[in-house]
Amino acid sequence: MNTTTRPLPRLRGPGAGLLAFDPVHTALLHGLDTLLRGLAEQLAAPECLGPPLLPADGLARLDYFRNFPHLGVPAGRFAPEALDALAGGEPPTDVPLRTTGHVLPSATCYGLLLSLEGQDIGDDGMLLSATGRCFRNETHYDGLRRLHGFHMREVVYLGTKDGCVEHLDRGAEFITAAARRLGLELTRAAADDPFYDRQGSRARLMALDPVKHEYSISDGTAIASVNRHRNFFGERLRISAGTHGSAYSACVAFGVERWAHAMILAHGSAEAALVALRDVPPGPPQYPTTRTAE
């Protein structure tokens, strides 16, 4: 049976913040992730695959629930007493759940960092890169801009304080150069993360000394960020950098669906965005001649 010429039906999201991708959007998403992987390739950061779930107790040690309790998506299991009701056709929304002690990732780096707990990465530091499916509870959802589940590519550095500065400089250069190649105009600004407790210590520290800067397109959508963790994860997870003591860390992050949104906004349609992406010349981006200080 020949189905190659039959037009595909429009794929609709099965719920709020949930989207199914048709072949054009899928090709756009994969193509953008390949382009964004260029930073990892330039830095020789090996590609990893983080865990699909994160231990809740590990995140608690990183103050995740103190700062972002509203964003977490817990993984539950149906209670044994609910199984007969489910087998009898009762809707799963009406039966009890039990916690598993795990939470779906809300950022790619958490799984990588937790996997390094208690290790010494050595004096030379290390780089890791990964794309992960991330999940967040949001107050509202908006197409590709704000999803319940999305893909985040990150390039993470662990090592020295100076190494973090260099890593973020390289990341900032790559973001600017990649956007230019794609015909996107970005603005950079200190991030205003959605802390649950605006009066909490980390929220106040962020206001005094921003550790995250975002790159946004014309409609205000942040599509990339550079993040300075100081030695927070190194101390909390006992990750050491040889003779340098607790490891400092930093990451460069890309919201892949948001890059797709930016391309569609800039070029008018997913089809036109995919053509523009495929027309991007091969090879590494040409960096600007000056660097932006953190």
Rank of each mutant, 00 (worst) to 15 (best):
135 F>G: 03
233 F>G: 04
203 A>N: 04
242 G>H: 04
216 S>E: 13
12 R>H: 10
61 R>H: 10
238 R>F: 09
101 G>Q: 07
144 L>D: 11
200 G>E: 13
11 L>D: 12
265 L>I: 10
177 A>M: 09
215 Y>L: 03
187 T>L: 08
96 P>E: 06
118 G>Y: 01
109 C>M: 04
143 G>V: 01
149 G>A: 13
78 F>Y: 13
129 S>W: 04
114 L>R: 00
192 D>R: 14
166 E>K: 14
257 E>F: 00
34 T>G: 09
82 A>T: 06
121 I>C: 01
179 A>Y: 07
197 D>P: 01
266 A>I: 07
26 T>Q: 12
105 P>G: 00
273 A>N: 08
133 R>T: 13
96 P>G: 04
228 R>A: 08
122 G>H: 02
14 P>W: 08
276 A>Y: 01
8 L>I: 06
57 D>C: 09
119 Q>I: 00
235 E>K: 13
292 T>S: 13
197 D>M: 05
245 G>M: 03
258 R>F: 06
257 E>R: 00
262 A>V: 02
290 T>Q: 15
257 E>L: 00
183 G>H: 04
278 R>M: 11
131 T>V: 14
170 R>H: 14
22 D>G: 15
12 R>F: 07
211 V>I: 11
228 R>V: 03
235 E>P: 14
68 F>R: 09
47 E>N: 01
18 L>D: 08
243 T>Q: 15
121 I>Y: 04
44 A>R: 12
85 A>I: 00
57 D>I: 00
103 V>R: 01
223 I>K: 02
251 C>T: 06
243 T>I: 11
117 E>K: 05
293 A>M: 13
194 P>V: 01
72 G>Y: 03
137 N>T: 13
33 D>M: 08
90 E>F: 00
70 H>F: 03
1 M>F: 09
109 C>I: 05
28 L>A: 05
237 L>I: 00
27 A>M: 12
74 P>W: 01
255 G>T: 02
136 R>L: 05
184 L>P: 05
113 L>Y: 04
198 R>A: 15
235 E>T: 14
226 V>N: 14
124 D>N: 11
206 M>K: 12
206 M>L: 14
205 L>A: 15
216 S>F: 03
230 R>Q: 14
254 F>N: 12
277 L>E: 07
104 L>M: 13
243 T>H: 15
163 G>K: 06
12 R>T: 09
27 A>Y: 05
213 H>K: 08
194 P>A: 06
244 H>A: 14
116 L>N: 04
55 P>E: 12
39 L>E: 12
278 R>T: 11
71 L>K: 06
194 P>T: 08
284 P>F: 05
11 L>M: 07
47 E>L: 02
292 T>E: 15
112 L>H: 09
126 M>C: 12
51 P>T: 06
142 D>P: 06
163 G>T: 05
150 F>G: 10
278 R>Q: 15
9 P>N: 08
162 D>K: 00
119 Q>G: 07
205 L>M: 14
18 L>F: 07
202 R>F: 06
263 M>C: 10
220 G>H: 01
265 L>F: 10
229 H>E: 11
70 H>R: 07
181 R>G: 03
268 G>S: 02
25 H>S: 12
84 D>P: 02
83 L>P: 09
95 V>Y: 00
139 T>K: 14
